[in-house]
Simulated scan of single mutants.
Amino acid sequence: MRTRTTLQEPEDFTSGEGLRALLNRLHEAGPGAWQHDPVAADLMVYAAQKYDLLARKHGLDPWEAASAAFDVMRTKAARTADDPWGVVTHAVRITCIAEERGQGLLCSVHQARRPNFSVFHDAERLSDRENPLTDYHASFQVTDPDPTDTDTGADADAGVGPPAVRMSAHAAMDDAIALFVALEWPPHVARAGVEHICQALARAGNRQSAYELLRRDKHARALLDVNRTAWSALLRALLGHPNPAYAATASGRGILLRLLIGESREALLRDDDLVLMISLAAPKPGGR
């Protein structure tokens, strides 16, 4: 006697109707069905393969996309939709975008889905850019105060606003020359160098532009007969450090500005870093 056995055809979850039938069966099977059903395991492998390119487009692993698909497949919306795979794909795409935004914004995926967080740009380290942020971002730019600008009216009476000019430009230049001479620079080199830099500063209009022009001024170095070290020290001491990040510091202001805003020559001589830089760079006979 022969017994006929009927083999059940595997469920075709690749089609919309097949996916709906499988999702309804798993839902009716109750808790644990997804964990123990072999067809459910095949479905998740298929989902990982189906959404592989979408996941990689957003910098994710394919199984992260499969996890998002698993979450939506268990909802009533997926089981009752006219196009179950369309609902799943749309949900996975939104989740991948939110995952990518969350990683960029350094926040949770839940926050990345909300417009009040997602409108911001990704977090950046200052070292991520080829040019430092301080070189071009307006928040880090500091303009030189106009030494000829004096306040009048109630603000001036109350002592509010920029410090008053206590020294003329010519007096500041003479004090700067005297400072270099006191730190063992030859008088003729100190005077010619300071005067040349002051003239270039007047033409350029601001210290940063003057610094960039003078830094490459080989003609001035030749006329003064000084080496590159002495010339660089002269520029930095008079005009200050060129990096905008130092603009509000003593190192960034430079001798000329510090004299114009009221610092005395004696106060500058108490600046150990400034004195050391000028002294070590003092030119020797022959430009060495």
Rank of each mutant, 00 (worst) to 15 (best):
R2V: 04
R2L: 15
T6D: 12
T6Y: 02
T6Q: 13
L7F: 03
E9V: 11
D12K: 14
S15F: 02
A21L: 11
L22G: 02
L22S: 10
L23I: 00
L23E: 00
N24T: 00
P31R: 03
P31V: 02
G32I: 01
G32F: 09
A33L: 07
Q35M: 13
P38M: 13
L43T: 05
M44Y: 03
M44I: 15
V45F: 11
A48H: 08
Q49V: 03
Y51M: 05
Y51S: 06
Y51C: 11
L54D: 04
R56P: 08
R56N: 04
H58P: 09
D61W: 11
E64C: 08
A65E: 06
A66L: 11
S67Y: 11
D71G: 14
M73S: 05
T75P: 09
T75H: 09
R79Q: 08
T80C: 00
T80V: 14
D83I: 08
P84M: 05
P84V: 00
P84S: 03
W85K: 10
T89F: 01
V92D: 07
T95N: 12
C96H: 10
C96D: 06
C107M: 14
Q111M: 13
A112R: 00
R114V: 11
N116C: 10
V119C: 02
F120P: 07
D122W: 03
D122L: 03
D122N: 07
A123K: 08
L126W: 08
S127A: 13
D128N: 01
R129F: 11
P132R: 08
P132F: 03
Y136L: 04
Y136V: 02
Y136P: 06
A138Y: 15
F140W: 14
T143V: 15
D144I: 00
P145Y: 14
D146Q: 13
D151W: 12
T152A: 15
A156S: 12
A156T: 11
D157P: 01
D157H: 05
G159W: 08
P163S: 12
P163Q: 05
V165H: 13
S168M: 02
H170Y: 04
A171Y: 00
A172P: 11
D175I: 03
F180C: 03
V181R: 06
A182H: 11
A182R: 14
A182E: 14
A182T: 06
W185K: 07
W185E: 07
V189D: 02
V189E: 07
A190E: 08
R191I: 00
G193A: 05
V194S: 08
Q199E: 13
L201G: 00
A210E: 01
Y211N: 12
L223M: 13
R228F: 13
T229S: 11
A230N: 05
W231F: 15
S232I: 10
S232Q: 10
A233C: 12
R236N: 07
L239Q: 00
H241L: 11
P242M: 06
P244N: 04
A245I: 09
A247V: 12
A250V: 02
A250K: 04
G252L: 04
G254C: 04
L257R: 14
L260K: 00
G262Q: 05
E263I: 02
S264P: 10
S264C: 09
S264D: 06
A267N: 09
D271N: 09
L274E: 06
I278V: 15
S279K: 13
L280S: 08
A281L: 15
A282N: 03
A282L: 01
A282H: 01
P283Q: 14
K284V: 00
K284D: 01
G287V: 02
R288Q: 11
